[in-house]
Design a binder for these strands. Sequence first.
RNA 1: GGGCCCGUAGCUUAGCCUGGUUGGAGCACCCGGCUGAUAACCGGGAGGCCACCGGUUCAAAUCCGGUCGGGCCCA
Length: 1071
Amino acid sequence: MPKTSSEKQPLNSGAYDPVSLETEVSERWNTEKTFKKSIEQRRNSKPFTFLEGPPTANGKPGIHHVLSRLYKDMVCRWKTMEGHLVERKGGWDTHGLPVEIEVQKQLNLMSNEEIEAYGMEAFNQKCKESVWTYEEAWREMSERMAFWVDMDNPYVTLHDEYIESAWWSLKQMHDKGLLFRGHKVLPYCPQTGTSYSTHEVSLGYKEVAEPAVYVKFQLVDDNASVLAWTTTPWTLPGNVGLAVGPDVVYCRIRITEPPAGSWEGRGGAKVDDELILAKDLLPEVMRHKMEIIEEFSGSDLVGKAYHPLFPGAIDRGDSETAWTIVGADFVTTTDGTGIVHTAVMYGEDDYSLGMEVGFPAQHTVGMDGKFIQGTHDELDGQYVKDCDSKIIDLLSNDSQLYREHIYTHDYPHCWRTDHPLLYYAMDSWFVRMTAVKDKIIEYNSQVEWAPEWTGTGRVGEWLRNIKDWAISRERYWGTPIPVWICEECGHDHCIGSIEEMISLKTESSPTPKELHRPYVDDVKLHCTQKECNGKMVREPYVMDCWFDSGCAFFAQWHYPFENEDKFKGSFPVDYICEAVDQTRGWFYSLLAVSTTVFDSICYNRCLSLGHVLDNEGKKMSKSKGNVVNPWDHFNKEGSDAIRWYMTTQSAPWNPMNFDPNGVRETYAKMFLTLWNVHRFHADYALLDGFTPSDKSNFIPVEQRSPLDRWILSRIATVAQDYHNQFVSWEFHKAGRDLENFVINDLSNWYVRRSRRRLWDEADSNDKRACQHTLHEVLCTVSKLMAPVSPFMSDRIHYDLTGISVHMTDWPMGSDLVEKDLPPQDLELEKQMAIVRNLTETGRRIRVDSKRRQRLPCQSGWIVGGPDLSDFHAIIAEELNVENLETEDDLDRFQQIELFPEHKVLGKKYRAELPNVLAELNKIDSETLLSQIDSGTANLGGYEITMEDVSIRRVEKEGYAASTFAADDIGDISLVLDMSLSDSLISKGLAREITRRIQSKRKDLDLELEATISLNVWLSEDSPKLSSQDWEYVKFETRASNAELFYSESNNASDNFEVEGKEISFTLKLNN
RNA sequence: GGGCCCGUAGCUUAGCCUGGUUGGAGCACCCGGCUGAUAACCGGGAGGCCACCGGUUCAAAUCCGGUCGGGCCCA
């Protein structure tokens, strides 16, 4: 009896149930601590460092997370097998606006006021809890999909240690003079007191009809007014300048007559008033009759001063450009007047222009959305959007309004309160990225990007237009900005550690419970300026959460306070991998922090993944109902199948159209097939007591059959290609090749051709050679697929060897582990390719000639090609041919055809090519060849030489034959003899009967070894079955006693027809 | 509005860098074959304005320019 120890031989495997197989393997990993061991095994080896981009656990994991975790896992497993120490620390991103929004929804807190009324401490406590809402779901998904990462000791951005490291890095920037305070213009809702990200803004666009005004700005030292247009009258008190396009054509016009029709709304102009505006926009803007006095370009207007609309609303300060005209490239003549009203604090373009030319940067509007005291008597303290009409009145009364009208456009609104958002310059802290532009571009160019264009194109483009990084947020839940400002002298100080904060804090300040608001807000520091005795108060901001995650590479180790060795040993990181939307997110923030703090590259390789779309290429969204739940597939086809599908479906960086049917297909083809190959091997190995480790039974490769040596060579070749494609990030091609190998080479050819070898009940060298071969091939296949689909590969490898595949070495070897592949024989591979081509060709001939496959042909001839005598038995059997011969006289069955070589002829004849081809088309191949041979091939004046044509041999007409081209070998034909004889008919009949009985045995679920009793009735006029063929039937169907009748049956259980003659049989299982 | 990527059969895709014979597969469909071979396999068929328009060229799925559609990032 065979032994049952799994260490010695395969277990009987049973039907493939992905869910239970994967669950069992997963449990074994847990019991045997395989993940930990796979790392510990390489403890003293060269590290390959991976950095996990931290997900946020306050959202449910989706199918796109499966994709990124797959590629992270795949590379880490692969590098582990190559012999590296690959530690994978988990991480959680826990701060930021999305968390706050979630909690605000939960608690129905719609504004900052309400949050503060609720209490910041309690609010932040809720945020902290909310962050872990889906942690369990993330863990379950990660485990189910076999993403190996240490989730028991993750880095967490809300931990004091992490925050302290982030503080330290900000201090480095501060000390290098890279940190400064400025403004950032953001969409802002005064009702909720919050500014919005573009993402949130896009939730609330609404079409609105609002007053828009054409305003006259009276020039100083000139009787003309400049006409500007705005859709936000509330920004007019904040006006400090006007912008013109330097190359735009403007004109000065004089009003000659009042308007012809009735005038709508307020405003107007008197005859002889002079106005200046863009010439192209005259018809749109003007309602009066007028004449053009003068034309000039915008640059002629630059420098002219005008009178402020609301004198005293803004203090000129030391600005020399306030209330003058300046040039700006963004000015166009698509709408308005070609002259742009600029209020520095209420528009992004306005702000950057104001900074550039030195306009005063002062607010006329408070954070509450109301005009500040001192703006204007009639406006002070009122909500700006309520003042549109009043402002228009004021302008109209002063004759500063030309015209008003209603303007309809899409404008962002607060998705919570439905109020229009104001573009508002918020106080903000910045990192001066513009100062390190050259460096960061240089570091980026050192990264190995996959695909390359992400680095050169996407990231490169972004870096060339780099802007200073606004790192502060007026929020509650986040890493507090560690900057304190002295109330007395205004000096700012950046804290770099808890210790430093404690040493500077005033005696009355409490020691914060943790490094979050509101606790750190209560800490006051002694001013660090020598002469100053003031108290320093913390800036009330938190950091952009991208800054948090951008610190991951050192903050995960609490560097520089701890783990110096761990940090130094893992920096720069070898590999990171996230979806392409991280280009301006994490990919950038890591690079930004490493450049500014460490003056170094941050990661050596970055794989940027495409997005997962639905099967129509549309974005997945809840509202469209096209979101794929990974568990639907985990629970059906298994995570191996989903991982393999995702890998092979498209290049990692391409957007993936996720097709649930594709997962099904992968399951049915790759996994069922591989599993059945494994089961086939395991069944016979168990039956025969095959022990791969028993050296006395070993058959050296060179003594095995050509078929064995072929499949071994194939797996060596495939492994080589597979590895090369891994190296060049083309995992999709690698996977497709391996799948092709498993299905076509291994299952459809090697196993199919080897079935009978294993049926042999007696022990034989050939059988053992086959078993060793299967064992070796399956081991190598499991190793290659282990990084992609870690469950089945491990199950197979473990069944075969008792060792987890994830503890083994990469078969291709590396600079750390030995190569372990069978010998290659490319000549043999070529020959087998031809053999398989011949058998397919044979089937084609039979279809064309309407000759059933089971009816043998007496003779077949192979014409041309290499010596295939090793394989004649196989070919004859596949073709069902009695005698297979090689025909050396090529002309017997083949004729010559010449094909023009377009590439050669094109170079030679250029534009004449069509004529040459027409000439070649006229002449027959034999004649042309003889002319070329005699050196006189001249067609219509064109000389044709041997280089201009290729010779192909095709089968002669009238034969049951077909020709195919083999690489480097030329054309090979197969010819089949279609004649019939009694003997052939008898053999064909035997095959038909056998096939039917076998099918019946299978229907009855008979054991393979079971013997049967058999009666067969052929009709009286049926062709006779020879006694030899009858023996064949009995042998094949394991009929220990059998009888053949030529008569009508009276009690047959089954019958069928062959060529119109009825055949029937009965079959009984022997006891 | 700017940048980057994608568009090939009903679906998923190869080929494009480096132009050259008839654009190659798989799924699904139809016909046939084969099977102690598995949701498998083999042969054949049908199914392609290679998104569209223009250019370069003897020759374009391939190179160039533009348009449209999809995706992402930034404004």
